[in-house]
Design a protein around this nucleic acid. Structure first.
Lengths: 400, 400
DNA sequence: AAGGCTTAATTTACGCGGTTATTAAAGTGT
DNA sequence: ACACTTTAATAACCGCGTAAATTAAGCCTT
């Protein structure tokens, strides 16, 4: 079924890609290291590295000390070969960040969104303003930017030009990619926010080194990103990983998606707050927004039996949801992220693990480590910024 | 992250594998077809095909008629280059089948199992007897057999030698591969039965041509096989796809796995029969075994309101379970197989589709066709027999 | 029936790519 | 200053697919 033709040029490109990726993800490394890790011969490595240095993608970065023998040269991806922009289009704000190829953040800009679904045009305007802002802050010309990555909290369909369906933003079939391309002459990559978060954790955070991992994002909405055999799994129309709307309680609570008993209706921020309010016999939960309300709930757990019970139930639901992921995907790791996920996980991780252990099959449960994300909330923008980088690495550094 | 070194020899092997696979799955084809489909140049195709013919793997099979111009030669995988054996180790019986490389069944043998978990040694004995029986029936020497594939209803962990955990057989950590290798000097491949069924449907049945598909097996137990990007997804310890033990009804019916609310407890044959009995206020369901009991239920639906309701509820649960698969995997197709799945699906497919539509997100639901399997119950053995074939194809026809 | 046309398959010359073996480079230690 | 060690670059070599040219094998027209 593998209809990829393989020819000699492709060999070179694959090896360029392999070496460049290794250097990017685990650099700096010496030519010797590269030869060892990739299995290529030393001359081949030198040859390819020569190309990459010639193209300005890789630079030598000091010799490593030796005890006898010629010291080897450290190689690393040139941080300033290009810059990348990452955008997080969340439910409440847009954040634009600018990185170099060492993924050091050079500048950032924030734009709050109106509570009720913002118009696509407004989002595009904010993104453009953000690009101007971060390039100016960093004092770089826009032409230095290799590409823009955008993470959106909604379904992003990838065929050709990315189309966004985001129920929570009130978007249905928005051609975001076209809207942005019309204004900016740069490569644009758009993906689901959970997937960009997963990508970031995979490369730089809790997912490092695993081939099979699931990244669960719990915030206002609930989503997941699934890495199978080392690559982000998208499915046929890129909407794979919609964990939040899997049925956990058949015929249960109504979900904003229109169905009943979805996981999100129980462990999404709104669902948790609703359940807490019901447990308080209808008394409103203190706090101006969802984040402070969840904070209030967690804080109240020390003294309030009701709050404690609501959190305990939340851990039960989350644990069962995680168990489903473990049974279906058999991952090495399940990483809990998103603002609510991190806030809850800090206290509830043991309870979540216990609940998952009770619902998952023994064998796959034993294989799966359930952990918290390491990159915090900005992981979505960081992950978005990796999208153009991933393209560069896959292409072996050829710009096209 | 791709550490596959790529070298010149590998180019040849990959192309051998690509051509051979194409021929096997879609043959007979001409050299021209191969050149078109694979993108290789005509001389390259001729060159590789020459090798394959020389090795006896491929034969020319008649010229195609032409209207002007030299007629092209049909090529096909030589059916008798090797034979393969497929074994289905189910909960109630063991079935051994012998195929040639055209996957024509040459012989088969059946061995019923005791209801209560059979000892591994007994299973091995049946398999060996089956091998002897089918080779004798077909009148071929055992040395013609390329390898043996075995599909087991349970978790099969692949690292090194396959280990089987099959709760329903009472097996825990059975080194089935070693037990068989000790008795037979042939390559042995063991995999989960749902996965071999999926493999069969993928190559020869309802899954043909799709890159992303989920095969749901509903029988005494409930399982699934997931194909992502054209390859069977296994997860870190090969137990991915344990759909039957995902939670569908939080805190619901007790399942034989020890957890509560598992899908299998509702739509596995036993679960359905139990629910029917309860709906009949404890009156036993007529029928000697599960298969006839399910048959009785389906047949009673025409006249009994109770039976009708139980089936309707079953469709609801199954639909929700399918919706979960659709939300998480975003497949092109969901294929319902297994003896109970086929029996139920024949009547309930519309109701299942409707239930899935109600629970799944709109966008992924629209992408997913929900269909019945095309290969019937013997698909497990057929799929098992494809395991050694898959190995041969991947290796490009080199025997090792 | 012969020559022309068309398509399939093979042959030839070529460039690319990685490998092994060898040589040069750049250090440490005695 | 010399031996030793390790890294990097160079040279000779073989395998692979490509493009272009050639041969093979049929149909069609005259």
């Amino acid at each position: 079924m593998d209809l990829e033709r393989t020819t000699n040029r492709i060999v070179r490109q694959r090896n360029r890609s392999a070496l460049l990726s290794k250097l990017f993800l685990e650099g700096p490394l010496t030519r010797q290291d590269l030869a060892r890790y990739t299995g290529l011969s030393q001359p081949a490595v030198s040859n390819v590295v020569g190309d990459l240095i010639g193209a300005g993608l890789v630079v030598e970065a000091g010799a490593v000390e030796s005890d006898g023998g010629r010291p080897s040269m450290m190689l690393r991806v040139a941080p300033r070969y290009a810059l990348v922009a990452g955008v997080d289009v969340g439910e409440t704000r847009i954040r634009v960040e600018l990185f170099d190829l060492a993924m050091t953040m050079l500048a950032s800009a924030d734009y709050p969104l109106d509570a009720a679904g913002p118009a696509p045009a407004a989002v595009v305007r904010h993104i453009l303003a953000g690009l101007d802002a971060v390039t100016e802050q960093a004092g770089v010309p826009r032409s230095d930017i290799l590409g823009i990555g955008i993470g959106v909290s909604g379904v992003v369909v990838q065929g050709g030009e990315a189309i966004v369906h985001a129920q929570t933003l009130g978007w249905h079939g928005v051609p975001l990619e076209r809207l942005i391309r019309a204004e900016v002459d740069l490569p644009v990559h758009i993906d689901n926010g959970a997937k960009t978060l997963g990508q970031a954790e995979m490369w730089f955070g809790a997912g490092r080194g695993s081939r099979h991992a699931v990244f669960a994002l719990v915030g206002s909405g609930v989503g997941a990103a699934v890495v199978t055999n080392g690559v982000m799994y998208r499915g046929v129309s890129s909407s794979a990983g919609e964990w939040g709307h899997t049925t956990l309680v058949y015929d249960g609570r109504a979900c904003r998606c229109g169905a009943r008993g979805c996981l999100e209706a129980y462990v999404g921020a709104e669902g948790i707050i609703d359940r807490y309010r019901e447990a308080r016999r209808g008394h409103d939960v203190p706090g101006a927004d969802e984040e402070s309300q969840i904070g209030a709930l967690i804080e109240a757990a020390d003294r309030s039996e009701t709050a404690r019970r609501v959190l305990e139930e939340t851990a039960g639901y989350l644990g069962a949801g995680v168990a489903n992921l473990i049974n279906l995907f058999n991952p090495e790791r399940v990483v809990l992220g998103g603002w609510a996920g991190v806030a809850l996980g800090a206290h509830l991780l043991p309870a979540i693990r216990a609940a998952a252990a009770g619902q998952a099959l023994h064998q796959p449960y034993e294989q799966a480590a359930i952990e918290l994300g390491q990159l915090g909330v900005d992981a979505v923008a960081l992950g978005a910024a990796t999208l153009p980088v991933a393209r560069l690495l896959a292409a072996g550094g050829t710009r096209n």
